[in-house]
């Protein structure tokens, strides 16, 4: 379920951890291509293979990054919480969503239009650097977590 209820998206962007301390001019630009997006618990924000139309800055609730494989129950491999973002594959060659993203609670996010953000980055190297640096931080954190999970820390020593 999506809607575009009014709210001060510009202010919300400025208060979101992902956009913290970003140049106000960039926040003004990004606010123009942002909308509120609400998702009931159990609904999907995106499914693997979907075209990358938006990425989400989570404001309230949790979303799960879920992997579904034939013959296996869907598995949540990471939760993304308020203050974090979900969806970054779009930034690298407009790749489609890699995994399903399910709302685990009633979720409110700021949905940013991917094409709008990419066009704005084409017009501003500074904005591109900002977005790149912040997304790299997200990717690095997810990579660290994935590596630790891969080790099966809590399993039997090998």
């Amino acid at each position: 379920m999506n809607d575009t209820r009014t709210g001060d998206i510009r202010q919300a962007l400025g208060e979101h951890d992902f956009f913290a301390a970003m140049d106000p001019r960039h926040l003004d630009t990004l606010a123009q291509m942002s909308r509120w997006s609400d998702h009931a618990a159990g609904s999907w924000l995106a499914c693997a293979g979907d075209a990358p139309d938006s990425f989400h800055a989570i404001v309230r609730g949790r979303v799960g990054i879920e992997i579904t494989a034939t013959g296996r129950a869907p598995l949540v491999v990471a939760t993304v919480h308020a203050g974090d973002v979900v969806g970054w594959s779009w930034f690298i060659g407009r790749q489609p969503w890699q995994f399903d993203v399910v709302a685990l609670d009633d979720v409110r996010s700021i949905a940013l239009d991917v094409n709008g953000v990419l066009d704005a980055c084409d017009r501003s190297d500074d904005l591109r650097d900002e977005i790149t640096t912040r997304l790299l931080r997200v990717v690095a954190d997810r990579l660290r977590s994935a590596r630790l999970q891969l080790v099966d820390l809590y399993g039997r020593a090998r």
Partner: peptide, 25 residues
Amino acid sequence: ITVDAASWRWDGAVGTATDVVARLG
């Protein structure tokens, strides 16, 4: 509580303990 993997019915976090510590802020 955080676990390495779970079904969507799990009401805690999924990820590492480090992720949770980093989120405490």
